[in-house]
Amino acid sequence: MSATELTVDGVTLTAGARHLVRNVSLHARPGEVIGLVGPNGSGKSSLLRAVYRVLRPDAGQVRIDGTDAWSLPVRRLARTLAAVVQEPTAGFDLTVREVVAMGRTPHKGLLAGDTAEDDRLIESALAAVDAALLADRSFDRLSGGERQRVLIARALAQQPSLLVLDEPTNHLDIRHQLEVLGILRQLPATVLVALHDLNLAAYYCDRLHVLCDGEVIVSGPPAEVLTVELLREVYGVAGEVVIHPRTGAPHITFLPDATDRPVPAATDHSVP
């Protein structure tokens, strides 16, 4: 399956009188990795929920290959889009392999068992996230990081042409963060991902959309978006931004406010 084109056109989401997202537009060309960044509460998760069809927009439209996402039959949507979300996932009385096998459900008949191809895809997905040795473990007994890797494997087994992920590197150690994001870059799919780590977003994303108070305030390639001014105005922190000599991507060093540092106690060096 080829990668999907995603268009978010003027989407607004409200909760009572409060705007979660206001008039947000973005476009992901087939095969691109598009990053959503911004402070906590900026609207990233809400926007993703509109894309994977949990929150219906109050205004605007989400289109998948030009078709309104909310008009797609559930089965067709499930064959096209996979989501890895932040909601609690406890309560699966299943093995890891059974959880990953759930990703194959949209591609099978109601009572059909796993085929040899299903088995191959499940094993491949587990290996991709370094979870093959967890296959027979109970999902509920895994650590947070292990669960996250298994849920990503389930999405990979689904073979989507559009993959939506909300903070997929949460709970992962550095090695697995890099491995997971490296996998996303290599998939024959379009990827929309919310990330907190700006350095990871700068390296792995083709373009970034910065959300603040439910609105996109700047969009573009990471080198154009991630500036000292943005760090100060959106995140309220000081930092330096340089182009890393080996990766060619922007690299941010955050600078603590010198006024926040404790004043060293005075030391009396006089000779008694």
Rank of each mutant, 00 (worst) to 15 (best):
3 A>K: 05
3 A>D: 01
14 T>Q: 13
16 G>F: 06
19 H>C: 09
21 V>E: 02
25 S>Q: 05
25 S>D: 04
28 A>N: 03
30 P>H: 13
32 E>N: 08
33 V>L: 13
36 L>R: 07
48 L>P: 00
50 A>S: 15
61 Q>I: 14
63 R>H: 11
66 G>P: 02
79 R>V: 07
84 V>K: 03
85 V>D: 02
86 Q>M: 02
87 E>C: 05
87 E>Q: 14
94 L>V: 01
95 T>H: 06
97 R>F: 01
100 V>M: 08
101 A>H: 04
103 G>H: 10
103 G>P: 00
103 G>Q: 05
105 T>C: 02
105 T>F: 07
105 T>R: 13
106 P>A: 12
114 D>I: 11
118 D>K: 12
119 D>L: 12
124 S>G: 14
124 S>D: 13
127 A>P: 00
131 A>L: 06
137 R>E: 04
138 S>L: 08
138 S>K: 12
139 F>V: 04
142 L>V: 12
143 S>T: 14
147 R>T: 07
156 L>M: 11
157 A>W: 02
157 A>S: 08
161 S>L: 05
163 L>H: 03
165 L>D: 01
167 E>Y: 07
171 H>Y: 13
173 D>L: 09
179 E>R: 15
179 E>N: 15
180 V>D: 01
183 I>P: 04
185 R>D: 05
187 L>P: 01
192 L>S: 04
192 L>F: 11
194 A>Q: 05
196 H>C: 09
202 A>P: 07
204 Y>D: 01
207 R>L: 01
210 V>W: 02
214 G>C: 08
217 I>T: 15
220 G>A: 10
224 E>F: 03
228 V>N: 11
234 V>I: 13
234 V>D: 01
235 Y>P: 00
235 Y>D: 02
236 G>K: 08
237 V>R: 04
240 E>Q: 14
244 H>L: 03
248 G>N: 06
248 G>W: 10
250 P>V: 07
253 T>E: 00
254 F>P: 00
266 A>K: 12
268 D>F: 08
270 S>P: 00
271 V>P: 00
272 P>T: 12
